[in-house]
């Protein structure tokens, strides 16, 4: 097995992130599409292990290859990855873990500041950005995404859109890349907490939801 792509120190990306991107492409566009992407990005063997670490240049190469193949900007690809993580049946563990935040999308927003700590409980070596929710009144919020891997902001954006749907809330969102010394942020407008019937969620792990 070749592990020229595996490194122990330096700028690293957790395999779980890379694996998520890989599964997103395979589950959404098929195995052939993923093999093309892996070839373009020089990924050999053509798969990521979720429990290993990789040079983050490899992640960027893979994202670039996806962006070209799908003819979509990188931000849009990353948003789709975020949505995929919350909605696809192959990744329902992630949706479940996020739904532990509370019974409503409001509870979920309120718990966002704790999300990095919760991620750390689940995957201790995954570097996750710090999140700070700023409430601006009238259902307006600003979610600051600070530190590590600016790309996360788009994944979070996509995941939050999907999660709002999952809770049945109506939310408008707009992401902003970090510029200069300013951290990236997501502007949210919570138009309705219960806009539609949300999906069921039961705490018991044996439950299908």
């Amino acid at each position: 097995m070749s592990h020229n792509s595996y490194i122990a120190v330096g700028d690293i990306m957790h395999g779980l992130v890379n694996r998520s991107i890989e599964c997103f492409v395979r589950d959404t566009y098929g195995q052939m599409a993923w093999e093309d992407v892996a070839r373009c990005a020089g990924l050999e063997p053509a798969t990521f292990e979720s429990m290993l670490h990789y040079d983050d240049r490899l992640t960027h190469a893979v994202l670039e290859a996806i962006s070209q193949r799908l003819n979509k900007p990188r931000e849009a690809v990353l948003e789709d990855v975020g949505t995929y993580l919350v909605t696809h049946s192959n990744t329902k563990a992630i949706r479940r873990l996020l739904r532990f935040s509370g019974d409503s999308f409001g509870d979920f927003l309120a718990s966002l500041d704790d999300l990095p700590e919760r991620v750390k409980l689940a995957v201790p070596d995954l570097e996750f950005p710090r999140l700070e929710l700023e409430e601006r009144g009238n259902g307006q919020f600003c979610l600051w995404v600070r530190g590590a891997h600016a790309e996360f902001i788009w994944v979070i954006c996509g995941a939050m859109r999907a999660l709002a749907d999952d809770y049945g809330a109506l939310v408008l969102m707009e992401g902003h890349d970090p510029v200069g010394g300013t951290d990236g942020f997501i502007e949210l407008h919570l138009a309705a907490l219960s806009f539609a019937e949300g999906n069921a969620f039961s705490l018991g792990a044996g439950g299908a939801n």
């Binding site: 563990a93 873990l97 532990f100 919760r118 409980l121 689940a122 792990a205």
Partner: peptide, 11 residues
């Protein structure tokens, strides 16, 4: 705790 149990099982 339920979160942790489920997260660790998934890992």
């Amino acid at each position: 705790m339920l979160f942790l149990i489920e997260a660790k099982s998934a890992a």
